[in-house]
Computed example of a mutant assay.
Amino acid sequence: MNAKQKSSHTFELLYIIGIIAISFSSIFIKWSTAEVSVVAMYRLYLTNLLMLPLAWRYRNELFHLSARQWSMLAWSGIALGLHFLLWMASLRLTTVASSTVFLSLEPILVMLGSYFFFRTKTNRMMIIGMGMAILGSLAIASGDFKLSGQALTGDVLSILGTVAVSVHMLIGKHLREQLSAFVYNFWVFMIAATSLALYNIVQGYPFTGYAPREWGIFLLLAIVPTLFGHYLFNWLLKYINAAAVSMAVLGEPVFSSLLAWMLLGEKLTPLQFGAGAFILAGVWLFIRYGRGDNKVVELPVDRTAPDVPVMPNDKIAN
């Protein structure tokens, strides 16, 4: 196996790890009884806290950004905070299957945005893979779509949250060409958390008084879906095009629905089980043929300033 193939397999493995990690997000949120904006805020602040030990190594880059970069970081962070607020709220109003399925719209929005803003090309296999994954996602939620009442509100919130995270991904693709994964994630998570903190202050939600169990859930959200999910995907934006990275959300309904079935007792039909395999096949096709113009190359490891996780040097150009 040559160096290029090894790099390719590494990216694919990390991609799968990220999908599984973000799939736990909906389960942890369902377990919590705190306001979703508080859950999201502490999820992100705790992630920043976990990243602090490495901040000294990036001290020069952290504070030497242009005005334009600060502006784009702010918009990316606000979009991420809005995504968490809207999508996490949807989980309180509908099932995991229905809430996560609308995230399948994200790669479509990102692909369109990538074409208009970055002129990223697509090919037939990418479109076929996306179509398979979207059809499978619709099948997973087919037994739970509701057209009235509380569930409809949850569906709308999930769709709006998907629009917000698509904006976050597109801005991130641009900034990751200029910034290391650590610096980008650190400031985006901080800005998102602070925007949610301001929202909580306006709403009058308490910042303290939560049971140890709630703090444990906040920490799990920081470690599993945020560090091993969102951070990892933002790192991959340097090496895989934004539409391909955003396809990860199409694997989320599969694992989230299975976890909800096992841990929350939510029902899943045989059709939905079969659709899960269909989604995974579509996701594989998309990531297999969806790197676009981003070339996968063998990248040297920078031992002096490793990212989290310790991976190829972010400073190597595509």
Rank of each mutant, 00 (worst) to 15 (best):
M1C: 04
K6Y: 12
S7G: 03
S8N: 11
S8R: 09
H9T: 15
E12H: 14
Y15P: 07
I16D: 08
I17V: 12
G18M: 04
I19K: 01
I27G: 02
I29A: 15
I29P: 01
A34C: 02
A34N: 01
V38R: 10
V38Q: 08
N48P: 08
L52Q: 09
P53M: 13
W56F: 13
R57N: 06
Y58N: 07
N60V: 12
N60E: 11
H64V: 05
L65A: 07
Q69S: 05
S71P: 13
A74C: 13
S76P: 13
G77N: 12
L80S: 07
G81P: 01
L82T: 15
L82A: 11
M88F: 08
L91S: 06
T95S: 15
A97K: 08
S104P: 10
L105Q: 11
I108Q: 04
L109F: 15
M111N: 05
G113L: 02
G113H: 02
Y115F: 14
R119H: 14
K121N: 10
R124Q: 06
I128W: 09
M130E: 02
G136E: 06
S137D: 09
S137G: 14
A139N: 05
A139V: 00
I140P: 12
L147F: 15
S148F: 12
G149S: 08
G149C: 07
T153R: 12
V156M: 11
V156H: 11
L157P: 04
S158M: 09
S158E: 09
V163E: 03
A164L: 08
V165D: 02
V165I: 14
V165W: 09
S166R: 06
V167G: 01
H168R: 02
M169P: 03
H174Q: 10
H174W: 08
L175A: 05
R176E: 00
S180W: 03
A181K: 10
A181Y: 10
F182A: 00
F182G: 01
F182S: 00
F186M: 12
V188Q: 04
V188P: 12
M190D: 06
I191E: 08
L196N: 01
A197M: 13
A197W: 08
L198H: 00
Y199I: 03
Q203I: 05
T208Q: 02
R213T: 10
W215E: 04
I217M: 08
L219F: 10
L220W: 05
L221V: 01
I223C: 01
V224W: 00
V224T: 04
F228Y: 13
F228T: 14
H230K: 05
F233D: 07
F233I: 09
F233W: 13
L237D: 01
K238G: 08
Y239R: 03
Y239E: 04
I240G: 07
N241D: 13
A242D: 09
V245W: 00
G251R: 00
S257K: 02
S257N: 06
S257H: 10
L258M: 10
W261K: 07
G265A: 12
A277K: 03
A277P: 04
L280S: 07
L280Y: 12
G282P: 07
V283S: 01
W284Y: 15
F286L: 10
I287F: 06
G292F: 02
N294V: 12
K295F: 14
E298K: 00
E298A: 13
L299D: 00
P300I: 09
V308A: 00
P309M: 12
P309D: 12
M311C: 05
N313P: 02
N313F: 13
D314V: 01
K315D: 08
A317H: 05
N318F: 08
N318C: 14
